[in-house]
Amino acid sequence: MSSDHSPAALTQDRSQERTDGGDAREDSPFRSERSVRDEAPQYVLPLVVRIERAAPPARTDALETAARAVLLILDDERSLGEGEWAAAMRDWQDARIRKVVRRARGAEWRRAEALPGITVTGAAAQVRVFPPVPLDGWPKELAKLQVSGTDLDEPEQPARPDPAVPVLWLNPELEMSAGKAMAQAGHGAQLAWWALPDEARTAWREAGFPLAVRTASPSRWPELTMSGLPLVRDAGFTEIAPGSCTVVADHPALRRA
Rank of each mutant, 00 (worst) to 15 (best):
M1A: 13
M1V: 09
H5N: 07
S6R: 14
A9F: 04
L10I: 04
L10D: 12
Q12C: 02
E17F: 08
R18M: 11
R18T: 09
D20K: 00
G21W: 11
D23E: 11
A24V: 00
D27F: 08
E33K: 11
S35W: 00
S35D: 10
R37C: 01
E39M: 10
Q42K: 02
Y43Q: 03
Y43K: 01
V44R: 09
L47F: 03
V48Y: 04
V49G: 15
R50I: 01
I51Q: 13
I51G: 03
E52D: 15
R53I: 01
P57I: 01
A58Q: 14
R59F: 02
T60G: 03
D61V: 08
L63H: 15
E64S: 10
E64H: 02
A66S: 15
R68T: 12
R68A: 13
L71A: 14
D75R: 11
D75S: 15
D76I: 02
R78Y: 03
R78W: 02
S79N: 06
G81Q: 13
G83I: 04
E84S: 13
A86H: 08
R90K: 14
D91C: 02
W92H: 10
W92L: 07
Q93N: 05
D94T: 10
A95C: 06
A95D: 11
V100F: 04
V100N: 04
R105T: 10
A107H: 05
A107F: 00
A107C: 00
E108S: 05
E108H: 09
A112K: 05
E113L: 14
P116I: 07
G117Y: 06
T121Y: 00
G122L: 05
A125P: 07
A125Q: 06
Q126M: 12
V127G: 07
F130I: 02
G137I: 03
G137S: 04
W138L: 15
E141I: 03
E141V: 08
K144C: 07
V147G: 10
S148V: 10
T150L: 12
L152M: 04
D153N: 12
E154P: 05
P158Q: 07
A159T: 14
R160D: 14
P163G: 06
V165R: 10
P166Y: 08
L168K: 12
L170V: 03
N171P: 05
P172M: 08
E173R: 13
E175S: 14
E175N: 10
M176D: 05
A178L: 03
G179E: 11
K180A: 13
K180D: 06
K180Y: 10
A183D: 14
A185Q: 12
G186W: 09
H187I: 05
Q190A: 10
Q190C: 03
W194K: 02
A195H: 06
L196F: 02
D198H: 08
A200P: 01
R201L: 13
A203V: 11
A207H: 03
F209A: 04
R214V: 12
A216W: 11
S219N: 06
P222G: 09
L224Y: 11
L224M: 11
M226W: 01
G228T: 04
L231G: 08
V232C: 08
A235N: 11
A235E: 05
G236H: 08
T238P: 00
A241R: 15
C245S: 09
V247L: 07
V247N: 04
V248W: 03
D250R: 13
H251D: 12
P252C: 08
A253F: 01
A253T: 01
L254R: 10
